[in-house]
Design a protein around this nucleic acid. Sequence first.
DNA 1: TCCTTTAGTATCTTTTTGTATACTATATCA
DNA 2: TGATATAGTATACAAAAAGATACTAAAGGA
Lengths: 116, 116
Amino acid sequence: MEKKPELCRVDDALSILVGKWKPIILLHLLQKGTLRFSELKRSLPGITQKMLTNQLRELEEEDIISRKVYPQVPPKVEYSITKYGKTLEPILEAMHEWGTKHTLHKKNKVNSKASS
Amino acid sequence: MEKKPELCRVDDALSILVGKWKPIILLHLLQKGTLRFSELKRSLPGITQKMLTNQLRELEEEDIISRKVYPQVPPKVEYSITKYGKTLEPILEAMHEWGTKHTLHKKNKVNSKASS
DNA sequence: TCCTTTAGTATCTTTTTGTATACTATATCA
DNA sequence: TGATATAGTATACAAAAAGATACTAAAGGA
């Protein structure tokens, strides 16, 4: 671990990943490479169009994903993970692994409190 | 990488780490093990007492840190990283490493746009 | 002619986060 | 006697993130 927390660069990665739907959007794009807007929407039950657009725009802004518009009617827009975006994969993987391993931790704490 | 984004557990880790001061607080505690409230405050220029208390409470709630009160006047309260909290270290490390490596990426993008 | 599809935008409201500022108790020190 | 240090709480406010809902264009099909 870095010996100088004051030089902390954790927030650089964190600020890109923070957003209610960003991690799951990235997981889908990392898995499939490219997805249409409507495919993403169908993959994310509960998301509104506004939120999806908004999260995609922010990821695009950071050069994590790219957007390709096909001049058709009805419109077709494809989103792909960029090379740079792929560098986030180890972080997402680490968090997913952690989450999978420790899902029960909090629950156990709550239960042991509740039963005391 | 997990092949089923719909079983995504990334948010479990993310929700613990999200908070303006949490990562840096954790880095300090991971480095030193234990710190007093006032030591933490001095280590975090710009943080208000309310925010520090608040972030510490949330981390304590998640069992990432523990709080020990010494019955003295003036009061003394020590915060330590828990064993469970230490399991977050690889994630923080991955993010810090990513941030360090890619700090220049965005800047370069902005510059190349600005100069076009 | 009207309905459907796609990928959005525009508004408004609610919820969540973060900031600013003032206040507290109590032992010790000058 | 009055200032200082510690670890907070209380209150009000501002800003950011998220949610709900309605609206758009334009080709193709029934």
